[in-house]
Write a protein that binds this DNA or RNA. Structure first.
Lengths: 261, 261
DNA sequence: CGAAGTTTTGAGGACCTTCAAAAGTTGTGG
DNA sequence: CCACAACTTTTGAAGGTCCTCAAAACTTCG
């Protein structure tokens, strides 16, 4: 049994900070509608007006930015329970394309419904804001990944990120996860040419780091972590804002005591 | 006369959506303290607890992520009137270093003060959230820049982004802006080696695209835009939601009074 | 079984990196 | 105000990573 999109998304938010039961209900009753897509379809076009927030219930989705000359950079992959489009909640236009890579079921919530909810519920507003900040942390990590690592390390890093995120939603089984994208899409997400991505993938497979098919099985996860120098804390998957007030006060006073330079 | 850090930041927020006068006041009276830094100093360490939000009043600041092997990726530059650390407002730890590249004056506001304000003021909460979303859009664009463009185009793109952002705060004068960073830092922001950055810079200068010193003068801006395929809409500099024109004019005139350094 | 899409292979060359050192610049103290 | 140290920019050269082009092999699906 698959949980509804909203329930999955709620679970994701609550992994970071729990919500009171009443808030939970008002979240779960947000009105919206479902929409299904086959693989390789455009869910939101690059220049579409931004009116709804899309949550993935099942499937696999990418967000891409198309540059002037036709080059595309995939800037995020989204798994079940991810909110794809909160990034454009406060803008009138999306600035990127959303695309399905596998049969995908989405739930659509009008922005106005979200505003109505956040305006009367601080806790939820904060949880949503936090979620967009986690996305932003992932964007930064991707910039670092593409800017500082070379092909094999980039691949390893991406696979480890996906494994960690699948694990968080209970969909990592024996270090194996779905990756229903073409090598061409992988290349676009890693800033590599298709040919070079292919050869790098092969060399990693040959060395037994992982095997790939419709899914990826990490065979030598520890070695991959070492190869990519992976540190998944940027994913903020475990409760991060559970700081007891006493600690907070102590830290604050420490900071205050640092003299100006 | 330079506007205070908060006033500059408020002006930045209001360029996107105007605030009612009362909200403006509660924003401007946020308590905090100033801290000054010489060039090339660490403002926030990579593993520091996240307790305050830092606004740049004057100077030039970078945010960088250090990878396991010592490689660094600068993921953002911040100009006067930018809030550097809103990205970690809802986390307990920063995951990046903040560094000054020129003599810099910062204003520090405790997170708790910001929470207290946003909890009683929806409009401000939304404006701050929106600001973090704009930052995220810039992160995405940087990923695309590093992933899809080659050295000369990357440089052109970065310079055009900085020019647009300086222009928005009234600090672009004859297509000239301050860039008080070493080539080494530039290289770290663009995912290039120092040597290759240097040679690419030289070739662009030789062809008359721009001249550089402590500041950058874009001599052939239109050609640069074509070279980089630059489309600055991701910066969300002009009112993207609702700005009442009168307010815009007021703010603009305030901003105009900020002199160049 | 054929058509369309995807992965793989090969080869040549461009882009970019690394290493190492020289030249130029900035800041400091005598 | 000069001299020296530290830092930054520039140069050269060799080599690796990665890209482009082009075509073959493989897979998927109607």
């Amino acid at each position: 049994m698959t949980l509804s999109a909203i329930a999955q998304y709620l679970a994701k938010l609550e992994r970071r900070s729990a919500l009171p039961p009443r808030d939970r209900d008002s979240f779960l009753t947000l009105p919206g509608f479902y929409r299904d897509y086959a693989a390789n379809q455009t869910i939101v076009a690059g220049d579409a007006p931004s009116t709804h927030c899309v949550i993935v219930e099942t499937g696999f989705v990418s967000r891409a930015r198309t540059l002037g000359d036709g080059a595309r950079q995939i800037v995020a992959f989204h798994l079940p329970g991810d909110a794809v489009d909160l990034q454009s909640l406060l803008f009138t236009k999306t600035d990127h394309e959303i695309q399905s890579h596998a049969p995908t079921r989405t739930f659509w919530i009008a922005h106005d419904e979200i505003f109505a909810l956040t305006e009367r519920n601080q806790t939820i507003a904060k949880a949503l804001w936090q979620d967009t900040l986690v996305d932003a942390a992932i964007f930064r990590e991707w910039t670092a990944n593409v800017g500082q690592r070379r092909a094999r390390e980039r691949i390893a890093h991406l696979f480890l990120e996906l494994a960690a995120r699948y694990e968080a939603i209970g969909m990592l089984d024996a270090d194996t996860f779905d990756l229903p994208v073409t090598q061409s899409a992988l290349a676009e997400s890693l800033g590599l040419s298709l040919v070079h991505l292919n050869k790098s993938l092969q060399s990693l497979r040959r060395e037994g780091y992982f095997s790939t098919g419709h899914n990826v099985k990490l065979e030598r996860k520890a070695d991959l972590i070492a190869l990519a120098k992976f540190d998944g804390s940027y994913l903020h998957l475990n409760g991060s804002r559970t700081v007891d007030p006493k600690t907070r006060a102590t830290v604050a006073s420490l900071v205050r005591s640092i003299p100006s330079l």
